[in-house]
């Protein structure tokens, strides 16, 4: 009894030792999202020369050119032309298409990796979460632009995202259930890209 009490007291005294401070981490923008925000603010301030310089020399355009084969043809040229002409709506549309394409590719890659049955469940759950975080980081940047142009598509992406999140954050997590919403995100994104590219061709 006394020994038990002593042990309980010792455990209570020592317990705070496990509650040490280990610092915090907040997800940061990468160079592409940073460049996008700079561009967006320049466009909002109607500083088109600044926006053009930021686009010409920034990480966003480098990535856009690196991914050119997966993007609508002439996207880079259309963004440059919009910035040159001082047309923020067209520039924003081009940038939105780029990010929606990145989201689509992330959703497809996540689906492909989750389909690999060899990995342990815990690994697949973490992989799914990390992909969702990356998808949301990009979608968050263009949600307003997508909603303005296609409110149904924006709602569909958000709903599919929530479903995907539920499947890896729920108890018990089920990464297989995440695949259908990921496919849905990819499908809707492809539709947004196609519609935006068509309207861009019509406007030009």
């Amino acid at each position: 009894m006394t020994f038990g009490l002593a042990l309980a007291l010792l455990a209570a005294l020592v317990a705070p030792a496990a509650a040490h401070h280990v610092g915090t981490w907040t997800p940061r923008d990468n160079e592409i999202s940073t460049n996008f925000k700079q561009l967006k603010f320049s466009l909002q301030a109607r500083k088109f020369d600044v926006a053009r310089r930021l686009y010409e020399t920034g990480a966003l355009r480098r990535e856009l050119r690196a991914q050119a084969d997966k993007l609508p043809r002439g996207l880079d040229a259309s963004i440059r032309a919009a910035l040159q002409a001082g047309d923020p709506a067209s520039a924003e549309r081009g940038l939105m298409v780029f990010f929606v394409a990145l989201i689509r590719d992330l959703a497809l890659e996540a689906d492909r990796q989750l389909a690999e049955a060899g990995a342990p469940l815990a690994v697949r759950v973490v992989t799914g979460r990390k992909f969702l975080e990356a998808i949301w980081r990009y979608y968050n940047l263009v949600d307003f632009a997508v909603t303005q142009r296609d409110a149904k598509a924006a709602a569909a992406i958000r709903l599919a995202f929530e479903d995907a999140e539920e499947s890896v954050k729920g108890a018990p997590p089920n990464p297989d259930k995440m695949r259908a919403p990921l496919k849905q995100i990819a499908r809707v994104c492809s539709g947004v890209i196609e519609a935006s590219s068509t309207s861009a061709r019509r406007d030009s």
């Binding site: 610092g23 981490w25 990145l102 690994v123 990356a134």
Partner: peptide
């Protein structure tokens, strides 16, 4: 595999960033 890197830059850079921030935090602490 240890760090859950998936070979996609947009995902991996955040994982590496968090680990590097914590690595630095450990030294500071």
């Amino acid at each position: 595999d240890t760090h859950g890197l998936v070979g996609v830059r947009d995902v991996d850079e955040q994982i590496l960033d968090e680990a590097l921030v914590k690595f630095d935090a450990g030294l500071r602490l």
